[in-house]
Design a protein around this nucleic acid. Structure first.
Lengths: 191, 191
DNA sequence: CGGATCGTTGATCAACTTCAACGGTCGTGG
DNA sequence: CCACGACCGTTGAAGTTGATCAACGATCCG
């Protein structure tokens, strides 16, 4: 699992072997089965998780009991309810494994200690978050500007590999559409 | 202007006086008049800007020629077209002053040099971006889950001070609604 | 085989947009 | 100092998009 982590870190910064050894000490490896929860709404999110393998969904439930998927995470993603994690308040998100998933988890005290002991990790996360902001802004704009069909086509073009692994109901929830709408879009486009 | 910058930085990390002096050397102060552009679509975004005073909007224009406001920025905000800034590609965003605005600007080479010379700034931006991600996720969820009225009420509750400075047309564009819809929401709620 | 899960289809409905017209306010130039 | 245009918000009527509801078909798996 650490191979995967260090591979992804290496895309942004350089770590020495001693640094890698230090970093290892802060993480705990865990495995989750399909449908198992990494986090449930109302708990405090104690862990920041790096996905080494598998697929998860992060979602919240609105007043009417409807699910809304916040993000899908697969190999190389970091997931948590950031707000809950950072401020130790009850989580508003659920995080659940869609496939059997291997993660490396770090607690807030360990995250902070790691950033002190291996300061170059500040840089890693700064770059990671910087990129994440770009992605999130794009998705927000897409959500506001585009029609249902445009959103779906856009997702198809940019993440075809993921679409294939995820049932349409979940795609619908991710895009903020009714599952029926996606059916109809597909019908219109494949004559 | 630097007072404002250092005040905002002090909320997240501690800087020594020598560090502050170093940081100053990387920034350029600029003033923009109402309606003046900090960045226009198609240009490369050469600067990351810290707003010391004033108010700006960042928006993009879709295929149909409609504006969509990405964010409003006021004192203490950092703005740029991040993607353009980081990858030196043409900007998709316009950034325009809504009020007369004072900014401190830093180029990409200076940003990178500053992060090397004053590494604790990595930490500052890491925390800044970390918080920004939380905000952006919330806004995205709000945009997907809430009705027009809920979005407007939510904004009213969380940023009342800003609403007052911004014409309703722009609020509408920010929320992804027609200006008329906001009129009608206000009418229904204030009998 | 039987239940669960997922996708499809049609009919109806609600929310929001679009279009068009009008009224108020502010700032600028004659 | 007033008049005009620019800009902003409001209102009503009509039109669209996508949601909802309900029923059905397909596939997978124990």
């Amino acid at each position: 699992m650490f191979n995967t982590l260090f591979f992804h870190i290496a895309a942004k910064i350089v770590l020495s072997d001693p640094e890698k050894e230090i970093i290892k000490t802060f993480f705990t490896a865990r495995k989750f089965k399909r449908k198992q929860f990494l986090l449930q709404e109302g708990e405090t999110c104690k862990q920041l998780s790096f996905i080494a393998k598998g697929l998860i969904k992060s979602y919240n439930v609105d007043d009417k009991g409807e699910d809304h998927i916040n993000l899908f995470g697969w190999e190389g993603w970091w997931v948590s309810d950031f707000y809950s994690f950072l401020s130790a308040t009850p989580a508003q998100l659920n995080i659940e494994a869609i496939e059997d998933t291997d993660v490396l988890q770090i607690t807030l005290p360990n995250y902070e200690a790691m950033l002190v002991k291996v300061p170059v990790m500040e840089r890693y996360f700064r770059i990671l978050y910087q990129n994440s902001i770009v992605t999130k802004e794009r998705r927000l704009m897409s959500s506001i500007t585009h029609t249902a069909e445009e959103k779906y086509q856009h997702l198809l073009q940019h993440h075809p590999e993921i679409i294939k692994r995820i049932p349409q109901t979940l795609i619908a929830s991710y895009l903020g559409l009714a599952p029926e709408t996606i059916s109809r879009i597909k019908r219109n486009k494949t004559p």
